[in-house]
C-alpha cells in the first residue's frame, strides 16, 4: 500500500515537472503583440481610442447635418 502511494506521488511530481518544463519552453510562434516589449499593444490601444473618437465626431457631424436640413 505504502509503495503504491510513493509511486503515485512520484508520478504526480514527474507530471508536474514536465508541465513546468513545458511552460518554460513555450514554442515561439509569430506573436506580434508580445514582441518589442509589447509596444504593439500600446499602438492597438491608441488606435482604438483614435478611431473611436473619429467615429464619435463623425456621428455628431451627421446629426448636425440632419438638423441643418430640417430647419
Amino acid at each position: 500500500m505504502n509503495k503504491i502511494i510513493v509511486r503515485c506521488s512520484m508520478l504526480i511530481v514527474a507530471l508536474l515537472l514536465s508541465i513546468a518544463s513545458f511552460a518554460q519552453q513555450q514554442p515561439q510562434m509569430a506573436d506580434v503583440m508580445r514582441s518589442n516589449g509589447k509596444i504593439y499593444v500600446v499602438v492597438a490601444v491608441c488606435l482604438t481610442i483614435l478611431i473611436g473618437l473619429f467615429i464619435y465626431v463623425f456621428l455628431v457631424d451627421r446629426k448636425i447635418s440632419k438638423i441643418e436640413k430640417e430647419s
Partner: peptide, 19 residues
C-alpha cells in the same frame, strides 16, 4: 479632408510609436 485627417492620424500613431 476628414478622411485625410483620420488616415494621417492613424499614420501618426503607428509611425510615431514604431518608426
Amino acid at each position: 479632408w476628414k478622411i485625410v485627417s483620420l488616415l494621417l492620424l492613424i499614420y501618426t500613431v503607428v509611425g510615431g510609436f514604431l518608426m
